[in-house]
Design a protein around this nucleic acid. Structure first.
Lengths: 129, 129
DNA sequence: TCTTGCCTTGAAGTGAACTTCAAGGTGTAG
DNA sequence: CTACACCTTGAAGTTCACTTCAAGGCAAGA
């Protein structure tokens, strides 16, 4: 699969795919005789994994570390697992914060509904807790 | 409350507070005789709200729009409510994506545990789905 | 009065994560 | 054989959200 198809598959641009590879966010991609990228199943799985982690807000930096450890071989298994666990914990925390914000936002929207029904004025709206 | 105390209260820097005000992310803050900022209860509630929304990843841009509509007065109530609802929906979607990623991450960590028990090699790890 | 530690502004600088540009190579259809 | 749509690289540019800098004003203690 060429870079254009890979980009379409993951809704990324070809530039982003090349960028990811250049900075080591994904391991070097398989090439054909002309030096063109030809994404293998494994290459595509890397893209899939990285895209997923990026969408969840995992930093490029820690993903680069993970990928580079992966390329170092089996000795790095423990370290790699630790990185994943750290990222997992950060993710859990982020989800918690967002759920709290969601609750506050819902309250604020509630407040607007009440205000609109009661024809109340601006100042009373709901910005004082 | 001066800017330093306000910054401490919300674990922001004084520079960030000034920046937020300058770009219209919070309405103009109350000043004392010397022109120094003196955060009122209402000013602090704005900071609290904005900090919360920013932590949840709501863009500076849409918050500026919200704040500027607020300053326009009661006519903008409907529009402001719509902005909050849009942001709420985006937040729900972000939480969904993150929960999916969390599940994948947990699977991958599982995979590492199995691998480590079985003394399996790198290649078999778990990067192929 | 001088030092110290606040505060002010406008402007320039930073870091992260892409994105775009320039210059050129490859491959197939007409 | 040439047009066209791909592909390549390295380098420079962009956007977002701050952060730092420069130059100076205000206030209280030694």
């Amino acid at each position: 699969m060429n870079i254009k198809q890979a980009a379409e598959k993951f809704e990324l641009t070809t530039d982003t795919l090349r960028y990811y590879e250049r900075i080591g966010l994904i391991p070097p991609v398989t090439r054909n005789e002309s030096g063109y990228r030809d994404y293998s199943e494994i290459d595509l799985n890397w893209v899939s994994f990285i895209k997923c982690m990026r969408e969840a807000g995992v930093s490029v930096e820690s993903l680069i570390e993970y990928v580079s450890l992966f390329q170092e071989g089996a000795d790095s298994i423990t370290t790699r697992k630790e990185i994943l666990i750290d990222q997992r914990n950060e993710l859990v925390e982020k989800i918690r914060v967002m759920q709290e914000t969601l609750a506050k936002l819902d309250e604020k929207i509630e407040g607007y509904e009440e205000n609109m029904l009661a024809f109340q004025t601006e100042k009373l709206a709901n910005h004082d807790e």
